[in-house]
């Protein structure tokens, strides 16, 4: 397996070069004036656009700008984010934990609920349980995330005055500001940092702020996993080995869970891997509506403002995430199905 992992890691370098050239090339299709305009916030500043172009060499040839960017990357300088008003690297490590924290709660729920509901639906095919879960899946999948997030916010925050938007409540936020020495941001995830600082109340407050974002994300995304799992279970239950197992007297639970579900898991793993990878980009709608400044929020703001260093950084990051996720999925394949060999 090790040579396989090494090969994939080497492939990662090629992927990153390809992604960077592609994205840089796409961004270069914007005129130097348009890219310089990213530095401008009012009509008053527009007269400085020619100077900004010259200052940052925005009218240099593509390869000059690309290699200048690469050189800076190797110096550890990913550039300056106009949106985040700080270096891209620093901003990344500020926003990433926010997205990661949500995914740490959402991803297991998406996978677990998807498998569980899909299994129930498949096993009870054409019964009311199946119909209910399928309707649930269709509604969830077809709901615009943005709209669903807004509805949840209006009901639970606007009406019940529960689960306010943001990452942390005002009281705790002010406590951290007023007593900077008493709370250390070890991970940037308040649910974890609260525990590490011996403040479970902060963890609980952070959890309260995660309820709606996680609920939104899970309900919208779980449908896909569920439908894949359902199809897999139905297909497996119709196979000869299941009939044989039943003929041999295996009980229903053993047949469904140990035989059929295990084999139906392979496509679910693939999809789950893709979903987890995608979620690392942050769910833009969820982060914007629930006012969580994570990678998704940053990406949305940067895309609208053409914050080039940020777009490059996030594209590269996503390249890494997808290659690593595919590697993990491949390893899981081999673990679940011993017939698969990674060579």
């Amino acid at each position: 397996m090790l040579p396989y992992v090494i090969r994939r890691c080497l492939l990662l370098i090629l992927v990153l070069i390809g992604v960077s050239v592609l994205v840089f090339g796409i961004l270069m299709t914007f005129s130097p004036e348009r890219r310089a305009a990213a530095y401008v916030t009012s009509p008053q500043q527009a007269k400085d656009i020619p100077k900004i172009i010259q200052q940052y060499g925005l009218d240099d040839p593509f390869y000059v700008q690309y290699f200048r960017w690469i050189r800076e990357i190797f110096r550890g300088n990913l550039g300056w984010s106009l949106v985040a008003a700080r270096p891209v690297g620093e901003a990344f490590w500020r926003y990433f934990p926010v997205t990661l924290e949500m995914n740490c709660f959402a991803a297991p729920l998406v996978i677990f609920c998807g498998i569980w509901l899909g299994s129930i639906s498949g096993i009870h095919r054409d019964t009311w349980v199946d119909h209910v879960t399928r309707i649930f899946a269709i509604i969830g999948w077809s709901l615009p995330t943005f709209l669903f997030a807004l509805v949840l916010l209006m009901v639970f925050y606007g009406y019940f005055n529960l689960f306010s938007p943001g990452i942390l409540g005002d009281a705790y936020s002010m406590f951290i500001i007023d007593q900077p020495g008493q709370f250390v941001r070890y991970t940037g995830m308040y649910t974890v940092d609260g525990l590490l600082n011996g403040r479970p109340d902060i963890t609980l407050d952070a959890l309260r702020h995660l309820v709606l974002p996680v609920m939104t994300y899970v309900i919208v995304v779980v449908a896909l996993n569920m439908r894949i799992m359902r199809s897999g279970i139905i297909e497996e239950l119709a196979k000869d080995y299941v009939i044989t197992a039943r003929a041999k007297g295996a009980d229903k639970h053993t047949v469904n869970v140990k035989h059929a579900r295990r084999n139906a898991l392979l496509p679910v793993i693939t999809i789950s891997g893709q979903l987890v990878a995608l979620s690392m980009e942050g769910s833009i709608s969820v982060e914007v509506v629930f006012n969580r400044q994570g990678i998704g929020w940053w990406l949305a703001e940067s895309a609208t403002q053409l914050d080039m260093p940020v777009l490059m950084c996030i594209c590269l990051f996503m390249g890494v995430v997808f290659v690593v996720t595919n590697l993990v999925v491949d390893i899981l394949y081999a673990t679940i199905d011993p017939r698969i060999r990674l060579n």
Binding site: L153, G158, S164, P165, G166, V289, N291, A300, E301
Partner: peptide
């Protein structure tokens, strides 16, 4: 004693914050 300026990009979120008095 304090003044807090919070970033909330989405109008509906800001509206609800005003409505609830947050």
């Amino acid at each position: 004693e304090y003044a807090v300026y919070k970033i909330a990009s989405e109008w509906s979120t800001r509206k609800l914050m005003l409505q609830t008095g947050d």
